[in-house]
Design a protein around this nucleic acid. Structure first.
Lengths: 258, 258
DNA sequence: CGGTGTGAATTCATTCACAGCG
DNA sequence: CGCTGTGAATGAATTCACACCG
């Protein structure tokens, strides 16, 4: 039973991991893989993995496993990695720069078509490496370089609408300070964007047909701090170890977890 | 009924958002807030918010709402934001630099005590602004500046163990390339760290008493791409617009928002 | 009256366990 | 026989709806 309708969100969130692991296996010339192996490499258990994959279709072979190459392709197609996704980045501070340079984007069909900032000292700067695959013919290379150089030059925020019209980004990344984020978001939405990745530490309000995903660095640290604190509270309450040394790794003999 | 035992993970993940919103309200001198208001600002519904807060204790007043200042403190305490959390960042590329400079850390008790990299041209560099609050007395300022300058100088990865002994970081951030991440992780774990925030696109394997949280930029984009693709498929199936140009993503002229 | 706190109902996700296929 | 694919069981998170209190 192929399930074209409604892959659960939790599954969608794991597909990129499976895809990455499978791609690595592919590079090692591994032809097939069992749910058990793939699950271990992906940090999940095998039942979950099999159920996840079953939402895409029955792509495995009983008694054998999954064909790596075939599965890579199926997941890529499901995620839309076979398309080209033009991305605009707004806010070219440290984080925006880091994102503009991030290799993991280009390799999966995400192509930076524009960089925007409102700071006059940043506008006009060239950001990131301009790279062309070797073995490309000179004319194409020249054109590609030109286009890349263009899309790597930071433009002023007030060109946002022009950029959207000209380059039709499908996804916008907001890496501005918190204060500017909602305004930028409103303009992106006004220009027709429907997919936004937000790094600013604010909750953006958008119409219900726009999807926003949020990455909040401080939040992640706070969650870690919560668990760290809980661990310490428990250690204090428990009878054993004195653990004010740094070298610890006392690895609880047979730990009382949760 | 105060619930000391077991705040659900999903709730813990939302507490930082509530805390941020409440802090903003506090700065606007708002004294009390209802679950409805706080929920809207936090992007959740009010029932969820009330249930979340109920895990911390009965801190609201019926017919009135929550005391902003009191609630800020309670959440901060629960998350451990009243502590100081020394952080070490490993991998000082674009992202590591961005993280080292990120203001959202310092303001919540996260203090960068060390920066590590294995690249000799990076080692020795000074990263990030060294800042001291105004109105501090000169001697203290001098000491603070010294300590900060120290902790802002990139040190070589092979000093990792020394740094852990000297500065006792509670949390490590891995911002290295994928290839280096597992090795770095093993060394951090070996040195006793139990809380790791991983930006490298790999699944880290760690003992079960170590907590790893992962932020994967490419993954987030892929999830957006999935939904974007689904939206487009549906649009295609629906009667209106033709959209078979190669440049795809034909912007709807003046939006039919939902 | 207005708004919190919370059992009960519901929805969503994970895990179990095994039938059935290659 | 080995491993996938999946119903059924369990568990977690969300939402409902209202008793209860200030």
């Amino acid at each position: 039973m192929g399930a074209r309708r409604g892959i659960p969100d939790a599954t969608v969130a794991r597909l990129p991991v499976y895809h990455r692991v499978l791609t690595a296996l592919q590079e090692q010339r591994v032809a097939t893989v069992s749910s058990e192996e793939l699950a271990t490499e992906s940090g999940v258990n095998s039942a979950k993995l099999r159920k996840d994959l079953s939402y895409l279709g029955s792509y495995g072979t009983r008694g054998v496993g999954y064909d790596v190459e075939f599965l890579v392709y199926q997941i890529a197609r499901e995620l839309g990695l076979t398309h080209d996704w033009p991305v605009v980045i707004v806010g070219i501070g440290n984080l925006g720069r880091a994102l503009a340079n991030y290799g993991g984007f280009a390799s999966r069909g995400f192509r930076v078509v524009g960089l925007l900032d409102s700071d006059d000292t940043t506008v006009g700067q060239q950001v990131g490496h301009v790279v062309v695959d070797v073995g490309i013919d000179p004319a194409t290379a020249r054109a590609a370089l030109g286009a890349q150089a263009m899309s790597r030059t930071v433009r002023h925020l007030n060109e946002l609408e022009d950029l959207v019209i000209a380059s039709k980004p499908a996804i916008a990344v907001i890496a501005t300070p918190a204060k500017a984020a909602q305004d930028v978001c409103d303009r992106l939405v006004g220009a027709g964007l429907k997919s936004i990745l937000n790094f600013a530490p604010v909750v953006l309000s958008v119409p219900s047909d726009v999807e926003v995903r949020k990455v909040d660095l401080a939040t992640e640290l706070q969650i870690l701090a919560f668990h760290e604190q809980r661990r310490n509270r428990e250690a204090q309450a428990s009878p054993t170890q004195v653990d004010l040394t740094n070298e610890e790794t006392v690895l609880v003999p047979s730990g009382g977890k949760l």
